[in-house]
Amino acid sequence: MNSSFSLQRVSLLIKRYFKENLKVQIIIWIVLIIAFMGSVPFNIDFTFVIYLFGFMLATSQFSIFVISSNCINYLMIPASMIEKVVSSIFICFVYYFFALASSYIIGNLISNVISSLYTHTPFSVSFDFLTLKGMKILIHKGEYYNLSIWNLMGVVSIIQACGILVQLATKPKTVLSIFAGILVILPVIFFGQHQVWKTLIWGENASVDWYDRIYSSVQTTDSTLTLLIAISLISAMLWRINYSLLSNKQL
């Protein structure tokens, strides 16, 4: 058995998380399905649900540190810290996208079945939630907007790091890290979903020159590539911080 990394132990850790958080996961799935059911027929923006779900997953990973005995239980599990971080990344990313895509399809399917029953029209289901470019999400006025996987990955990794810091660090450090986290998250969300924010803040047909100029400069291939690399590096750096934080965690 490899001393510091074993896939078997990682799978055991993932299994442990889902068995211990089964009820929470069921509730989350129900909320997601209902949200996506409503998003198509009622043209409601449920983008925030995606971020909220990411936040819940990231913080639920490390809520164990609030109670000392739970913390002992977690730290004494015979697995290396790298395995514990990898299992957490799996839950916050792989499972996160799987749950979002699946609940979107299920939500769509249910709402289409219900509406076809009332309107007597054949139902169609949207399977194009996940595309190569990113995630497509149907929001205001029945239009599709791309929600980049990179965008979400950056946001979730920041939330994950903040989640650990909230549990582990001292109060001033926590406040500082949350503030820094928000500073990083805001532009990512702000420019990642250009049209949504523009409509929300300035109205549907507003023309905001400075905002449009920054957005269009971000949209050039070079800038987008730079942004992707930057977010990937930030995510990797935050995972490394998470690893250090967990390794140095004491009671």
Binding site: M1, S3, S4, S6, R9, K19, E20, K23, I67, S68, S69, N70, I72, N73, L75, M76, I77, P78, A79, S80, M81, E83, S247
Partner: peptide, 22 residues
């Protein structure tokens, strides 16, 4: 270092028991 080889040979029973929802 909290190596898995060490942790799998130690069992720690704390005074305050952990919350286990299983």
């Amino acid at each position: 270092k909290r190596k898995p080889e060490m942790l799998r040979e130690i069992f720690f029973l704390p005074e305050e028991l952990p919350q286990i929802l299983l």
